[in-house]
């Protein structure tokens, strides 16, 4: 077994030589890590942005799915990469939640957030068979029945829509678990289960329920946002109806490991901005019913930080945070 040792030794020697060379960023392919599976919304956003950034920077941007652990695996992979600009990733709202759950020590502070590129507010959706036409009527029924009568679903235990639901209930002076949350593996299985009669409410984003809404199987009662959504102009906000001031939205951001050199960071942010403003990206997001939102650098970091604090509060109140 002499061979591999020799190879190793010469490899080490060569590697030290090679690093001396320096050229302007980027000079080799960039890897974009997506913490969610191929085919999902986050994957699509990542692949499209990747293609546009590639056009802008002139080097290939390879989209790499690193899935599992409700996003923990992929987010860790982004944070643990070398902060040289050659590894970037799509960061999702879970970064503001999983550390409260005690799943990881990672927080948004472990990243250089380049930009927020999308945002979708939560909603209140019920099955068409349930016969509700307003969120007030639903809320009245929830209040008139004992705790646990109504069931909701649409994400995993402690996931974003679980927190969204708990936050809404708290804002209506109800216990955060007054509506029992049934964990599901995403909004689509939750919606299917609701239409099949398994649960009563799905508090996910309206974009996720769009096809079922179009099919008249699901009725959107409210949007958990400050203003009505462009794609659903007929759906009122919570504030307009029940008067609750609760808002929640998922966002997707492009992030890199903490500690990027300033020139690389600026170059990447510019490339992401061009990609965001490209016609392809804008049309795609509208066609899919995804909300467009742009915030760059410090502004984006502030949004992420605010959500982090807000979610921490609700999750503690709802018993979803680790002690």
């Amino acid at each position: 077994m002499k061979f591999p040792t020799t190879v190793m030794a010469s490899a080490m020697a060569l590697a030290t030589f090679a690093s001396a060379a320096w050229a302007e960023f980027p000079e080799r392919p960039i890897q974009m890590i997506v913490p969610w599976g191929a085919g999902g919304g986050t994957d699509a956003v990542g692949r499209l942005l990747g293609a546009e950034i590639q056009k802008e920077l002139g080097v290939p941007v390879n989209v790499v799915n690193r899935t599992g652990g409700s996003g923990v695996v992929g987010h860790s992979a982004i944070a643990n990469a070398d902060p040289d600009g050659y590894t970037i990733g799509i960061m999702t709202i879970e970064i503001d939640m999983m550390h409260w759950q005690g799943l990881t020590d990672l927080t948004y502070e472990d990243y250089d957030i380049l930009a927020i590129v999308n945002s979708d507010p939560g909603g209140v959706m019920v099955s068409a068979d349930a016969g509700y036409d307003s969120v007030e009527a639903l809320l009245e029924d929830i209040k008139s029945q004992p705790a646990g009568t109504f069931k909701a679903s649409g994400t995993g235990q402690g996931g974003i829509w679980h927190v969204g639901l708990a936050g809404w209930l708290l804002s209506e002076d109800l216990a955060p678990d007054y509506v029992t949350f049934v964990p599901s593996q995403g909004a689509a299985p939750g919606l299917t289960d609701m239409v099949a009669g398994g649960v009563d409410i799905v508090p996910s984003s309206l974009a996720e329920g769009r096809s079922m809404i179009d099919a008249n199987r699901v009725v959107p009662l409210a949007s958990m946002s400050a203003e009505r959504q462009n794609a659903f102009p007929d759906v009122p906000t919570l504030a307009e109806t029940t008067g609750s001031d609760w808002t929640v939205a998922v966002w997707r951001a492009v992030a890199a490991p903490d500690g990027l050199p300033d020139d690389v960071k600026t170059k990447l942010m510019d490339a992401v901005e061009t990609a965001y403003n490209s016609e392809e990206y804008q049309t795609f997001m509208k066609d899919r019913g995804f909300g467009l939102r742009w915030a760059r650098g410090d502004e984006a970091t502030q949004i992420v930080a605010d959500d982090d604090a807000a979610f921490g509060e609700v999750m503690k109140a709802a018993g979803l945070a680790a002690e």
């Binding site: 490899a11 060569l14 590697a15 030589f17 090679a18 690093s19 080799r28 890897q31 390879n62 989209v63 790499v64």
Partner: peptide, 15 residues
């Protein structure tokens, strides 16, 4: 297939 196979930092001419 764009699989990010491990790349060496010095044999870049092969890529």
């Amino acid at each position: 297939l764009l699989v990010p196979l491990p790349r060496s930092s010095f044999l870049t001419f092969l890529w």
